[in-house]
Nucleic acid binder design. Structure first.
Length: 125
DNA sequence: TCAGTGACTCCCC
DNA sequence: CGGGGAGCCACTG
């Protein structure tokens, strides 16, 4: 199956205002835990055209990876508009803003119980 | 078909 | 906290 990209878009489209997902989280929810880099690549190629809340996807350090492609300032501004604040190092508080989709939504994405458990555990739930 | 690429992540120091 | 390095893998030409 090569619907990874479609799953990525579907997932990102569901992120609530004021919340964020890491690239790795999106990859895991899309069924390929170690494809975080691909998520970034897809957003870079088709993110804007896909009408997605692309600003809600950040890296695992709580920082913005888009400075590398010249969109960092815009992403930060968009997130601040949603009420998110950044510290001196340019990172937001993941404990506070990282999103985890409700169980019912996970089922719709066909995420395995095992994967869900592993990530919840990883997030400290 | 296949090697190159990179909006990533983890680990070590 | 920050920088360097190795591993990762769907996408692309």
């Amino acid at each position: 199956m090569h619907d990874f990209g479609e799953k990525v878009f579907a997932i990102i489209g569901k992120i609530p205002r004021g919340k964020v997902l890491t690239y790795g989280q999106v990859a895991t929810l899309a069924g390929v835990p170690r494809a975080a880099r691909i998520v970034g690549g897809i957003l870079y190629q088709r993110g804007l055209a896909a009408r997605l809340p692309w600003q809600r996807v950040i890296n695992a350090q709580g920082k913005l990876s888009t400075y590398r492609v010249g969109m960092g300032e815009e992403q930060r501004r968009l997130l601040e508009t949603e009420g998110i604040k950044f510290d001196k190092a340019g990172a937001l508080d993941l404990k506070r803003h990282q999103w985890w989709p409700p169980p019912k939504m996970l089922k719709g994405w066909e995420v395995s119980e095992e994967t869900a458990f592993q990530i919840e555990e990883r997030l400290g739930f």
